[in-house]
Nucleic acid binder design. Structure first.
Lengths: 348, 348
DNA sequence: CGTTGTGGCTAGAGCGCTCTAGTCTTCCCT
DNA sequence: AGGGAAGACTAGAGCGCTCTAGCCACAACG
């Protein structure tokens, strides 16, 4: 960055004309130099850059975007409250840069809904939109996809109008369940994500693993959600059920929708006097920072953030440059085994 | 948002001219209507809006910014990994909107340093920069402040070149310490933030409270940091000290730099077999989401995010509109008492 | 010697808006 | 009837860039 403009020239920042005048060349030449285009001698380039430095000049992005045939912008919608989105944003920056695009960020927050976020991105004439875990209805996304090249990340969507990039959640849930099965568990319940993106897939994965193990009758899905509260409530409800001597015994393992949900389950279990993993094994999803904390030490399923970001940008670019050939790309998840899972407890 | 452009007019989005033509008015009129300026009859407004709707028109922000005398943009630099920044960003959106400004977001991440984030903001010709907890050296911020109206949030900085908006951390730490004193604790140690912004202030607050209570000799600050690891390590080190029969007994309470640090302390204490708050009281700082989790239930100090955001925007606007009259604004923090603090344990 | 490149450079027309300085009505007040 | 004044609307000049066309000087080629 320029460190200090020598001439604050009437308060306004220096323009290309200022640089051109000082370097005694045309404005076009300055443009050529700053875009690293052929058409200027080495000596002139140096002269222009020097003049720019002296004036503290940096090209005006607004003008640049306006006059360029293409804006070179990728609009990213993310939820400010979601650490996972934060990781994605970072990875998107590097992925976009590698392909010569810039990112325009627009946050979603309780007080700022997706419509507003998208409208603002569209107003900047982004060439494509990358939405992280959007909650808008399918129809809305479909319509949006007709308007602008669209990539939906971490959410399933069946449409020709958008690219979908997500982790293979079904596989992830399957891996989590199989891990528990391998430890000898049979009474495994799932606390699902309610209406959160990915819920249906993770339910399917859990169910598939159970059925494959011949435990179809043991399948049990509790309604949960993406927050600690959801996990806690679900487990409290479970624990409150009257113990039926003839009925099935209490579950020995829980597959939670995500790490936050798993934390809620852990809390409820602890309050109910259960030891983890001695009395109960718990698996989360996301491998968030909290999962790695020593006293949480949660077995979980890791999504490949860098891969998701790279794919998202690649698909966005493909949609921008080529005809809309919608694809749905799945990234493989990876089980991370930690201390919250252990062998099935012996019946007392 | 417009739901579906009736005419995708050669692939390119509709412009003001398209709308003007369709509504049979001049471009200027369309501009007036979209800026909600006086100078158009009610009937015409409706006609223009209708035409725009039919064309799926939305003003091009790039052109808007360029031609407007002022960009109306507030550039915000935030760290993608920091939940606290997320909260601030949300609050900034509403605060900025209330004063007629828009936000331009630029993220800082391990792979994207502050220089890049700032450069990108500057390229958009933001009228002011709001930096959330910047880690750049004072000199750099000072220089930046000479270049553009600058507001530094949640970081202390002694300069005329920038506005500083932060929580009164000294007071916060004082409140935390006084709370423990009121509960009867005397052996209170602080695990500080190492070099993190706010460390010095919080140390002062702790020290002041102790001295005021006549416990100057009991003051003890352990080097910590802003992460769980830091808190954990600090407490482990403390616990590892040989018990000196003549020396002071073990502390009965800890004032941690922030919630993450406090969590580390909690972890270490639990592993050492201590019950919280029976054997040890712990206070955090930030009132983060984790502090509110039932099984953490951390007594902590809450920063007024909305107030910080409002002040930050107000100061930014003041700097933009008026002469640089640098101010350093302190927001009062508030102690939130939860379950991690209790009366001083009776000597066994 | 004319022709054809070619490297280095410039003129000038946009990009899609905003905004100042009008013009043209119509209405109101003496 | 004349003289504003207000309201509705338009022309056109920017804003700071990019980019196409084209100019000029010089070299290489036949």
């Amino acid at each position: 960055m320029t460190s200090r403009p020598e001439s604050a020239r009437a308060g306004r920042p220096a323009t290309m004309s200022d640089v051109a005048a000082r370097a005694r060349v045309s404005r076009a030449l300055v443009s050529i130099v700053f875009r690293d285009q052929p058409g200027a001698s080495q000596a002139t380039r140096e002269r222009v850059r020097q003049a720019a430095r002296e004036l503290g000049y940096a090209p005006d992005q607004r003008a640049r975007l306006l006059s360029r045939r293409r804006s070179g912008l990728l609009g990213v919608q993310f939820a400010v409250e979601h650490p996972f989105h934060g990781e994605l944003v970072e990875a998107l920056y590097t992925a976009a840069e590698a392909r010569g695009y810039e990112l325009a960020l627009s946050a979603v927050a309780p007080s700022r809904d997706e419509e507003r976020a998208v409208a603002s991105l569209l107003a900047y004439r982004c060439e494509a939109l990358i939405l992280l875990g959007p909650t808008a209805p399918d129809g809305r996304l479909d319509a949006l996809g007709q308007q602008v090249p669209l990539v939906v990340v971490a959410r399933n969507l069946r449409t020709e109008q958008a690219e979908v990039v997500r982790t293979d959640d079904e596989d992830g849930a399957r891996q989590a369940t199989q891990h528990l099965l391998a430890l000898g568990h049979t009474r495994i319940v799932q606390v699902d994500g309610g209406g959160a993106p990915g819920s249906a897939e993770r339910r399917r994965g859990y169910r598939a693993a159970m059925e494959r193990a011949g435990l179809a009758t043991q399948v049990r899905v509790l309604t949960g959600g993406p927050t600690e509260r959801d996990g806690l409530d679900a487990f409290v409800r479970l624990a409150a059920e009257p113990a039926d001597p003839q009925g099935p015994r209490r579950p020995s393992a829980v597959v939670a929708f995500n790490d936050r949900c798993a934390l809620g389950v852990l809390q409820a279990a602890t309050q109910a006097g259960l030891q983890v993993p001695t009395d109960l094994s718990v698996v989360g999803y996301d491998d968030s920072r909290m999962a790695t904390l020593p006293w949480v030490d949660l077995t979980t399923v890791r999504q490949d953030v860098a891969e998701l970001a790279t794919l998202a940008v690649a698909r966005a670019v493909a949609r921008i440059e080529g005809p809309p050939g919608a694809a749905s790309l799945l990234t493989p998840p990876r089980l991370v085994v930690r201390g919250s899972t252990g062998p099935v407890p012996r019946p007392a």
